[in-house]
Amino acid sequence: MDFFSKLIDKMLFNSPNIEEFAPQVMFHIPENGLTKALQIANAPVKSTVTTTWILIVVLGLFSWWATRDLKEEPEAGSVQNVIEALVDSMQGLVRNTMGPGMQKFTPYIGTLMIYLTISNLIGLVPGRDILHLYTPTADLNTTFALAAITFFCIHYFGIKSKGIGTYFKDYFEPMPFMFPLNVIGNLADPMSLAFRLFGNMLGGGVVIMGLLYSVVALGIPGIADLYFTVFAGVLQAFIFTMLTMTYISMEME
């Protein structure tokens, strides 16, 4: 009971400013002719962006290293064997969720799943504070960007699959007066994707863990970290990916 009393007291009477859990500004974009023309001069670059850059470089280097010496019959337990198993599982997930003939989405869905999973697990990296690593998905800018890509895919492939006439006709189904509600519903899907992922990662993986570690250093925070960082992180990556596949496949039907 003493622990929970301390936690409640910390949250209600001595809760830290939410800015403590926000990404840090690492540097500002230098001012020159090009940045002025693009209207990004002196724009802040936060740790969310730099962490994403690090992930891109690490994943790019790993992809190059893992595929530089491919063999027709890889040895059991080799990196190629593991990667092929991962690709096969992603192809099966796409086929079972989106239906046959949808294998063209495997590269995007696989990339999305890997990026989200690793991003959500950044909290496990030793010395993350020293390296200024910040969970990218705990920043609404990142989740909105990912939701925007999903939104584009939904409607682009919907028009490509149905034709533009049938696509717009669906907005007036089952009755013409449903048009405004159908538009709102289509806009709400990516919004819900963005806020769900952002809320879970910021609230669980960043704020709650920060409060726990500020109350007690060992024991309970370590156990909670396994849940919020590992279980919840992987689960949220899976949910975002599954909903992306569901929305795209439904629009293409």
Rank of each mutant, 00 (worst) to 15 (best):
D2L: 08
F3C: 00
S5E: 14
D9N: 14
K10G: 07
K10E: 09
L12G: 00
L12N: 11
L12P: 02
F13A: 09
N17R: 10
E19M: 15
E20D: 15
A22R: 00
Q24L: 11
V25F: 15
V25C: 02
V25L: 07
M26A: 06
F27G: 02
P30W: 14
N32K: 12
Q39E: 15
A41V: 14
A43Q: 15
A43D: 13
S47D: 13
T48V: 11
V49K: 08
V49A: 14
V49C: 13
T52S: 11
L55P: 02
V58M: 12
L59W: 15
G60N: 09
L61H: 11
L61F: 08
W65P: 06
R68V: 12
K71C: 06
K71A: 11
E72W: 14
E75A: 14
Q80N: 07
N81R: 11
V82N: 14
E84C: 13
A85F: 12
S89L: 14
M90R: 04
G92K: 02
L93H: 05
T97K: 01
G99W: 10
P100I: 07
P100E: 11
G101C: 11
M102V: 04
M102N: 10
F105M: 00
T106Y: 10
Y108P: 03
T111Y: 15
M113N: 01
M113L: 11
L116K: 00
L116W: 07
T117V: 05
T117E: 13
I118P: 09
I122T: 02
V125G: 01
P126W: 07
R128A: 09
L131Y: 10
L133W: 15
A138F: 03
N141H: 10
T143D: 06
T143I: 01
T143L: 03
A145I: 14
A147G: 03
A148E: 12
T150F: 01
F151H: 05
F151E: 02
F157K: 08
G158H: 02
K160I: 03
S161P: 03
K162S: 10
G163I: 03
I164Y: 13
Y167S: 05
Y167P: 00
Y167E: 09
Y171C: 02
F172S: 08
P174Y: 15
P176D: 09
F177E: 14
P180D: 04
L181G: 12
G185E: 12
N186L: 04
L187T: 06
L193E: 02
L193G: 00
R196P: 01
L197A: 06
F198C: 06
G199A: 13
M201A: 02
G203F: 06
G204E: 10
V207F: 07
S214L: 08
S214H: 07
A217V: 03
L218W: 04
G219L: 11
I220A: 01
F228G: 01
V230I: 04
V230R: 05
G233N: 00
G233W: 01
L235I: 07
L235G: 01
L235D: 10
A237Q: 01
M242V: 10
L243Q: 08
T244A: 05
Y247W: 07
I248L: 08
M252Y: 02
